[in-house]
Amino acid sequence: MSKEEKKVNRRDFLFTASYTVGAVGIGAVIWPMIDQMNPDKAQQALATTEVDISSVEPGKSITVLWRGKPVFLKRRTPEEIAEARAVNLDDLPDPQKDEERVKEGKDEWLVMLGVCTHLGCVPLKDKGDYNGWFCPCHGSHYDVSGRIRKGPAPTNMEIPKFEFVDNNTIKIG
């Protein structure tokens, strides 16, 4: 019966249209439910930190908290800089020159996230086989430039966005 067939077609259209509208509606409700778990305004507001570095002697480092994560600020000695730059890039699992990890003219300052790129532990300073950092959790060794040398971590320790406000102040973030 052609008349009945036509009826069924109209019904099919209504079904498809209803499902589509329903899917869009469910999607519109689910997205806020998912996105509410992302960092909120208060978390985002903590995005910058200013650090006074005037009291840090060469060879020493300080650790500050930025967005809940430790940031290492190390004032390196000329020997340490020379050591970092003497490394053959072919020896690095994640090749990166030391020059790319510091600000030009401020080569003594290494500013990086003190977070192991493996599973997020805080590496210990002046430890490990490469005179840099050593992560106690799963045994990753970092060199004096914070580059991964040995162990399960896939990449070098991250350099956050930072700038020198003046000679004694660094702004992170």
Partner: peptide
């Protein structure tokens, strides 16, 4: 990971959820 944390590290929002 950031979505799971609700922050840029394990923090109060993480504990809450």
């Amino acid at each position: 990971t950031t979505w799971l944390w609700g922050a840029y590290s394990v923090d109060n929002p993480t504990l809450n959820r």
